[in-house]
């Protein structure tokens, strides 16, 4: 996200921005953090860390602009730069999956055609959630941002620091992978 010129706020203004522009997004932030970490305590730490950073760097935020995207960007950076290192968790990435999908242009041509609308509609919530959670974090993130949080591609590009074309292709690949996983779940339950 291009840095806005530094603002100058009084303490009262800072508190006002924090309470009225930042805090209303805390549920979305918590859900995003939980969907990245799969752990309530880790999600709480990540959200707290994000909000403290947001307050510390509040003068980089221009009042009345897109606070939600700004906060999501901080959270995503904290997750990548601090959290994953601190927790020493192996990044939940299926490298083979990533490699195949990042490096091949042909993969988009393989399209799952035999998943039925009715099958998807009859799937249990857990199966859909598991399919999403089984995706590598980069793919999971774009689906969360787009389908669950309703960000535009332009906002996602800013949050993730990637070109808009990469958002488009990553999302397309993520959805192909998700569809494959849903198809596997459907097959394992005996759906056609």
């Amino acid at each position: 996200m291009s840095e806005a010129p530094k603002q100058s706020y009084s303490e009262k203004q800072k508190v006002h921005i924090f309470d009225n522009e930042f805090l209303p997004h805390i549920d979305s932030m918590y859900n995003f953090a939980y969907r990245l970490t799969f752990d309530e305590d880790d999600a709480k730490d990540l959200v707290q860390d994000t909000y403290l950073k947001a307050y510390r760097f509040i003068e980089s935020f221009r009042q009345g602009t897109n606070a939600k995207a700004w906060l999501f960007r901080i959270l995503k950076n904290s997750f990548i730069n601090d959290f994953r290192k601190k927790s020493k968790q192996p990044a939940k990435v299926d490298y083979q999956e990533v490699e195949i999908y990042y490096n091949s242009d042909d993969v988009d041509e393989s399209i799952t055609t035999d998943l039925r609308v009715e099958t998807v509609q009859h799937m249990m919530g857990d199966e859909v959630t598991n399919a999403l959670n089984a995706l590598a974090v980069d793919f999971r993130t774009v689906i969360i941002l787009c389908d669950l949080e309703g960000f535009t591609y332009e906002e996602m590009a800013k949050i993730l620091d990637i070109p808009i074309g990469t958002v488009r292709s990553r999302l397309h690949r993520a959805r192909n992978l998700l569809k494959d996983k849903l198809k596997s779940y459907a097959e394992s339950r005996g759906f056609k």
Binding site: I26, M29, K44, V47, V120, L132
Partner: peptide, 25 residues
């Protein structure tokens, strides 16, 4: 088109949303 729409809808309906604990705020 209908399949993509169904998947998009199923994600919104199926993936649970949590409310942040007041203690954290």
């Amino acid at each position: 088109y209908n399949l993509e729409l169904a998947i998009k809808d199923s994600l919104v309906k199926a993936v649970p949303s949590k409310k942040v604990p007041q203690q954290l705020i």
